[in-house]
């Protein structure tokens, strides 16, 4: 995920802004980290460069 995506990304539940916590970065690309909703506090993982912004109940049922 590119960092400049942050201005267009939001929490899928309440549509508020997300804070980005970066674990691993490669050039301008964020490979792993967490997006945290500034309103509800729900956190969304970034894994293999892909932000997982599924509603939490769907994230848990995701096939491996």
């Amino acid at each position: 995920m590119k960092e400049d995506l942050m201005d267009i990304i939001c929490c899928p539940l309440d549509k508020h802004d997300l804070d980005l916590e970066v674990d691993e970065r490669d050039d301008g690309e964020i490979l792993s980290g967490t997006l945290v909703c500034t309103e509800c506090g729900e956190s969304y993982p970034i894994e293999d460069g892909i932000p997982n912004l599924l509603p939490p109940d769907m994230r848990d049922e995701a096939p491996a």
Partner: peptide, 10 residues
């Protein structure tokens, strides 16, 4: 991005 189209993370 992974997301669901009736809960758009946009």
């Amino acid at each position: 991005r992974l997301g669901e189209i009736s809960h758009l993370p946009v």
